[in-house]
């Protein structure tokens, strides 16, 4: 467990025992993270703020029964996503259709300092393009896995999917990357293998 997660776990424990100062600290620490996640589903800032408020208010009300967690962020992301979708369902949009066709605004990039000699600059740019052409759902899984650091199990819980579906979505997405990437990479891969040998 990372240091920040240990701090979080302690904060969570204090909050569960009814410590309102700990609760306020949780709100302050996680509000921006939740906003930056939620706003990707709906550009309406006021709606997202309302949802985040509700998540925290409900959390406070359920503090006696809320479970122990070592990963507060995961718990809150999950609650917020559910709250955003539930709100839309109440507005008359069909739940299945919300689950299937939702907005998830994200643009990935690959940081330059990590580009090593072995991997050419254009390939990385091409990879970025490919990442950004993935489906909303594939992007969200990648966002949660590689950016928020959630495990497959947690992603499944957040997105209300089973673990296998998460795996399949990821696998499909990453396979797409490989298929498109490898064509152009044939040369460099050959070159690399020569060098490695």
């Amino acid at each position: 467990m990372k240091a920040e997660q240990i701090d979080d776990a302690l904060l969570w424990q204090r909050f569960r025992s009814g410590d309102s100062v700990a609760f306020d600290q949780l709100v302050q620490a996680y509000y921006p993270i939740l906003f930056r996640y939620g706003i990707r589903f709906d550009p309406d800032e006021e709606y997202i703020k309302d949802c985040i408020q509700d998540v925290f208010v409900e959390l406070w009300q359920r503090r006696q029964t809320v479970r122990e967690t070592g990963f507060v962020k995961f718990y809150l992301l999950k609650s917020l996503r559910r709250r955003i979708f539930r709100g839309k369902a109440k507005w008359g949009t069909n739940w299945e259709s919300i689950q299937e066709n939702y907005l998830f605004e994200v643009e990935f990039s690959i940081e330059n300092q990590l580009i090593t000699q072995e991997i050419a600059h254009d390939q990385v740019r091409q990879l970025e393009t490919l990442l950004n052409q993935l489906s909303k759902r594939q992007k969200e899984v990648i966002f949660l896995k590689f950016y928020q650091g959630l495990t497959h199990e947690q992603i499944a819980e957040v997105m209300v999917l089973n673990r296998q579906s998460v795996y399949n979505i990821l696998h499909e997405a990453l396979q797409k990357l490989r298929n498109a990437w490898q064509g152009d990479m044939a040369f460099s891969v050959a070159l690399l293998s020569l060098l490695v040998r």
């Binding site: 509000y31 921006p32 906003f35 930056r36 706003i39 990707r40 550009p43 800032e45 605004e105 994200v106 643009e107 990935f108 990039s109 690959i110 940081e111 330059n112 300092q113 990590l114 580009i115 090593t116 072995e118 991997i119 990385v124 990879l127 990442l131 990648i142 966002f143 590689f146 950016y147 990437w181 460099s188 891969v189 690399l192 293998s193 490695v196």
Partner: peptide, 22 residues
């Protein structure tokens, strides 16, 4: 090795462009 290297680039370098903040 090469795919391991590529995978490392993605895992370590993948970032999300800032979208909207508060």
């Amino acid at each position: 090795r090469d795919i391991a290297e590529q995978a490392k680039v993605i895992i370590g370098g993948l970032s999300v462009k800032p979208y909207r903040d508060i």
